Simulated assay, not measured.
Amino acid sequence: MIEIAKEAARYAGAFLQERFLEQLIPDEELHNDVKLPEDKESERRIIEVLHRHFPEHTIFSEEIGMVERNEDYLWIVDPLDGTNNYFIGFPYFSISLALQHKGDVILGVVYNPVAGQMFWAEKGKGAFLNGKRLTVNKRDDLSRAVGTYIRGRNSVTREQELAFTRPFMLGTKRLLRNVAPALDWCLLANGWLDYIVMQRSGIMDVAAGILIAQEAGARITDWRGEPYQHEAFSTEHLPSLVASNGVLHEKVREMIVE
């Protein structure tokens, strides 16, 4: 299954990379989002591969919603994570696929075609980047820590975002806002980032990345410090999480102002 997920990601990624240098024409441009035909074609390619190999599996994807088949297996697909980045020519985007089996995520693939980065993980088997095993870093100095902020598209106002992120902007080396959350979790997994704070974000964008980070040794909790437990997929589920290399976790969590 992990190899088929990689195949689907590569097939979609080849198309996205081919189109990346073009001046794109959106289907719709909103105040905080953009809809591209490239999103739909990436999705079509992913679903083509998954249905060919697993015709009985259910698929949820950003553009078409739920294609219901066998409820035991559910593919959670983001065909273009970081659409706004892709639209403006910023090469920080990915294809994200996670497989949920009976309510538990068992594999995840996140692929950045421009950088040639294929991240993947299977539950209990570790996390990898292009075949190299991943592990979080051991940084213990909060003032030198680099993190990223992830928020829900329509669940957090700009005023709430400013208030929430201020302590991290002032108290750590740098807080990034990359707007491609699947990749953010992979950067934590490979020790490039030290922490992530996530505020009311849908699980579709991050399910694969969370598994990859977990398998690389990241500590993930809710804002109260309770260990993260994946809930059966729902579009209404908007968790708020903090993740880190483990060493910095409590220091980061203490900076959260609800």
Rank of each mutant, 00 (worst) to 15 (best):
R133I: 08
S201T: 10
G209S: 06
M204R: 05
S94F: 05
R69L: 09
S240E: 07
L74A: 07
E41N: 03
N190A: 09
T135A: 14
Y11N: 00
G89L: 03
M204H: 08
S240C: 12
S201E: 14
A189K: 08
A213W: 06
E43T: 02
E48L: 12
Y149V: 01
K132A: 12
S234W: 12
K123F: 02
F119R: 05
E68S: 06
K6A: 02
V49G: 12
E3V: 00
I76R: 04
C186N: 05
E236G: 02
V257T: 14
R219F: 08
L134C: 11
V197F: 10
G246Y: 14
E231M: 14
R174F: 11
V247Y: 08
D104N: 13
D72H: 11
A216C: 09
T83C: 10
V156Y: 12
L238P: 07
V110I: 13
L176G: 02
R52D: 05
R253T: 02
A163E: 10
A8F: 15
F87V: 10
N70H: 08
F233C: 06
T148D: 15
R19C: 10
R19I: 00
Q100A: 01
S42I: 06
I150W: 01
D27P: 01
T58I: 07
I256S: 03
K251A: 15
V77L: 12
A213Y: 11
M169T: 11
H31M: 04
S143R: 13
V179I: 00
T148E: 13
V109G: 06
A208I: 11
E38K: 08
D33P: 00
L238M: 09
L16K: 04
L107C: 12
Q199D: 14
L187H: 14
N190G: 11
V110A: 04
R253G: 08
A232I: 13
K102V: 06
